[in-house]
Structures are given as structure tokens and as C-alpha cells.
């Protein structure tokens, strides 16, 4: 056979086309056959993070545990079932000092306190901001209170620098020497939890509107009389003097509406 002229135009074009087609098929084949495994990996990584936020760290079989404990909600939050108790998991996204930070925080059924938290980052300073991934920092959130009234009061503060109206229940100590990353965590918490405040309220509120439930109002406020509980304690009158026409303390809430219904 005559020697192929490898420098001719026709040959070059044909060669290039054949090469492209072969490579394209090969890569498509590899990508599609491995896609399932890869997606499972990515999903498993996220599941592991979500499980960490309910204090289930280092699970051997992440997929099984996740399937057992977590359900996904339509609004992007997750509901966890831990030993019969329900927790709501809220996703967090924010900015640290050098790059993005993110995480998940789980809320107890009372809608007020933290059950667990998980944080991760892309490029914070090793030994300083990067310590937000360490367990000691994350478990420091367990049991902390989130809301003061309708505002998110939970925050990460340098020792001694928290606002004076916040009790220790709202404050998590910042990582020493990582002021800016800690500020980033605080901003992220306050912004993202506020976005899901309604979801948390709904989670807390639950189905029953029984008023035999524990008093929902704070100090100096009255329990609601019969029918429904108000959505927040701000709806209760703070004293019977405000209503004038009410007879007994227990009926304060009812007297604020002329038609005897609560808001």
C-alpha cells in the first residue's frame, strides 16, 4: 500500500475528525457510567454534613442513617427524628474572611433552642478560622437559645464582647484569634435563621392548638383563655389594665378583641 501522506489536508481533517469522535464517545461513556456513583458520593457528603448538625458525627453508614432519621422538606429545610423527638434542620450559607462558609443548624421542637450545628469552610486561615469545623466549636452551640422575641439573638461573640442584654444562653464563644471568621458565622446565623423563622414557627407550632399547653407568654404576660393560642406572646396584652373591660387576669387575651375572638 502506498505510504499515507500524513501531511495532506484531507488526511489531517479526517484524522482530526476521527480522533474527536472516538474521544467524545469514550468520555461520554465514562462520564455516564460513573455518574451514578459520583452523584451518590456528593449526596453522601451532604448527608454526612446534615447528620453532623444533629450530632450524629462519623456515622459508618451515612446513607442508611440518613434514610432512617432525616426527611427533606419542600422549603429546603430537613426534619430529623432523633429518639422519637423531632428536630428541624436549617441550611446556612454565608461569607467568612477569605471565602464562603456554610453549615446546618438543628432546632429543637420548642423552636427556641439549638440541638446541634455543623460548619464548613473553603479557605479560612488554618488554626484560626478553620477551627469552625472542629467538633468542640460546633457542640458549643448545643442547647443555646435562638430567638429573643422575633429577632435572632443567637450569636458568636468574643469573650466579654457580647451585648449586655444577652444572657449566656444566646452566646457562643468565638474562636480565639479568628474574629472575622467568627463574625462571618454570626452574620450567617442571623441572616439565614431569620429567613427560615416562619418555617421554625410552623415547626414549633405543630398541629395542636391546645391551650392547655405550657404558657407561651413571657414574664408578666397572661396565658390565653380558651380557644387558640396566639402565634407569639406579643399578641397577649401585658396586663388587664390595657383592656379595661376584662374581668379576670386569665381573660386578658380575650378582651382585646371586641368580638371575643383572639387574633
Amino acid at each position: 500500500m502506498a505510504k499515507l501522506n500524513t501531511n495532506s489536508n484531507v488526511y489531517t481533517i479526517v484524522y482530526a475528525s476521527v480522533m474527536v469522535i472516538i474521544v467524545a464517545f469514550l468520555l461520554a461513556f465514562v462520564a455516564s457510567s460513573l455518574k451514578a456513583t459520583q452523584d451518590a458520593n456528593v449526596a453522601r457528603d451532604v448527608k454526612g454534613q446534615i447528620l453532623s448538625s444533629v450530632n450524629l458525627r462519623g456515622e459508618a453508614d451515612v446513607d442508611a442513617k440518613y434514610a432512617e432519621v432525616i426527611t427533606e422538606n419542600a422549603d429546603g429545610t430537613f426534619t430529623a427524628n432523633i429518639n422519637g423527638e423531632q428536630k428541624l434542620i436549617v441550611p446556612l450559607k454565608g461569607a467568612g474572611l477569605w471565602g464562603p462558609i456554610w453549615g446546618y443548624i438543628s432546632v429543637n421542637k420548642d423552636g427556641e433552642t439549638v440541638y446541634g450545628a455543623f460548619f464548613n469552610h473553603e479557605g479560612e486561615t488554618a488554626g484560626l478560622g478553620a477551627r469552625i469545623v472542629e467538633e468542640w466549636f460546633q457542640t458549643g452551640f448545643n442547647g443555646k437559645k435562638i430567638f429573643m422575641g422575633d429577632e435572632v439573638a443567637l450569636g458568636v461573640y468574643k469573650a466579654g464582647k457580647a451585648p449586655s442584654n444577652l444572657s449566656a444562653d444566646y452566646v457562643v464563644d468565638a474562636v480565639t484569634g479568628a474574629t472575622l471568621t467568627s463574625d462571618g458565622v454570626r452574620n450567617m446565623l442571623q441572616k439565614c435563621i431569620a429567613q427560615y423563622a416562619d418555617a421554625i414557627k410552623a415547626f414549633k407550632g405543630g398541629e395542636s392548638k391546645s391551650c392547655d399547653a405550657k404558657p407561651c407568654c413571657g414574664e408578666g404576660q397572661c396565658e390565653m383563655a380558651d380557644s387558640c393560642c396566639a402565634d407569639s406572646c406579643a399578641d397577649c396584652a401585658s396586663s388587664c389594665d390595657e383592656c379595661g373591660a376584662c374581668k379576670a387576669e386569665k381573660e386578658c387575651g380575650a378582651c382585646c378583641e371586641s368580638d371575643n375572638t383572639n387574633k
Binding site: L27, V30, A31, L34, Q38
Partner: peptide, 13 residues
């Protein structure tokens, strides 16, 4: 690309 896909599938972390 092939190696990268394999890595993502089998040693994700």
C-alpha cells in the same frame, strides 16, 4: 478527564 471521573466516583473526599 477519565481519571478525574474515576477519582470522583471512588475516592470522593
Amino acid at each position: 478527564t477519565i481519571v478525574s471521573n474515576i477519582l470522583k466516583a471512588y475516592v470522593y473526599d
